[in-house]
Amino acid sequence: MTQRPLELILARNLMSALSTPAFLVDEGGLLVFYNEAAGALLGKRFEELGTVGAEEWGSMFGPFDGNGEPIPYDELPLVVAVRNGRPAHADFEISSADGARHQVEVSAFPILTAHGSQGAIAVFWPAGSHDGAGR
């Protein structure tokens, strides 16, 4: 089994202790962890889901723009952060496992080290939620 870079290990350890929903991807965009708070938002714990491929996680929970249209994968803050090595921020809506929609603000930033980018972190601030059945 390949050892994760220390920066990802420390990021995961920190995220595990936060009550703010947070996601972690590796340098290839693979979703390698999200914390319990994120699991509560999505309606599925990371342990149930496991590691998820780059394109797959981008579509699993939406996200949707203000018009309810899916946001292209390339425009997601986490993707911008890991690909371009710069922070990104966006407001959008995600869909949890039970179909509920949540309006969130997302800030993502790259994990840059002496050996280059090791991945990125995205932190979600729930801005409110409503039942998707009413849409």
């Binding site: 089994m1 050892q3 994760r4 220390l6 290990i9 350890n13 202790a17």
Partner: peptide
């Protein structure tokens, strides 16, 4: 073990274990 339970973590997520 800083912020981590090294008894239960997957090996890939334990600092230094690969060495």
């Amino acid at each position: 073990a800083l912020g981590a339970d090294i008894d239960s973590l997957d090996e890939a997520w334990i600092s230094g274990l690969g060495l």
